[in-house]
Amino acid sequence: MKRIRASRLGLLLMYAVLTIWAVISLIPLYWVFTTAFQQPNEVQIMPPKFIPTVVSRYLPLRLTGQKEAAQALVDGALESFRLLFQRTDMVRWFMNSALIAVSATAGVLFLDSMAAFSFAKKQFPGREFIFWLMISTMMIPGQVLLVPMFMVVRNLGIVNTPWAILLPQLSMVFGVFLLRQFMSTIPSELIEAARIDGAGEFGIYWRVMLPLAKPGLATLGILTFSASWNSFLWPLIAVQKSEWFTLPVGLKTLQDQNLVNYGLLMSGAAVAAVPMIIVFLSFQKYFIRGLTLGGVKG
């Protein structure tokens, strides 16, 4: 009896700590979204309005019959969105970003899981050397690689094409590292068992390794999508024609030289956050615990 009560108290405490922590963590994101929906003259006001006027005042106004005032609030809240959607090429930028981010995610998951499988579970001369050679390149700050990467894509003749953004993203090595660490914990007996059952090497990778690595793949998928979706400086340099602008590049060209338009900035950020949230939520189901190794005996 005593133990149960203690653990219940512990559970309560855990919930409390997590909830407070989560609330603090979410403040910046909350701020992004509320700023996006503030009235133009309330954007960036200090101290900030934690609840946008359109939320706090709309219903009272409607209920008291002030239809026009209520509508004006909605118009004010949506002003920067209207600008984004009606007067810019945002839909095109969005599709470009989506095409690149989806391709990058799919490509990275495939390439990195193959490489990680090999580094984690296969024996071949030079394995450790090649692995650490690749990993060590993460330690060079990306900023110094902008010029030589620009030279590479130019020599390949792919400047101003989406390949110039996509291929460097497919070449990043952190996913190989992540998945190798993840796959190395998967029991080798499973591979041996599959091999005895007559599976080929690709079959082992595809039918045994990938299903077992689902949580790791889901993590990498989320991270790759976000990284690709948010990347700014390289797409700005590699793709100069506006027809291939990505969302972050396009949004930045809307900003004036001298004063930042925070309403526009935060509305853009809010729009840009939605796909990442969707991707995150749809990968969520692969985090289910204890499913993967149920049938295995050690």
């Binding site: 902008l146 010029v147 620009f150 400086l233 700005l236 340099i237 100069q240 024609k241 506006s242 602008f245 590049v249 930045k252 060209t253 900003q255 004036d256 030289q257």
Partner: peptide
């Protein structure tokens, strides 16, 4: 080539 003001100098240096 449409470029944001803030990164124009950096982008030109790279080019």
């Amino acid at each position: 080539i449409e470029t944001p003001w803030a990164e124009l100098g950096d982008k030109l240096s790279i080019a």
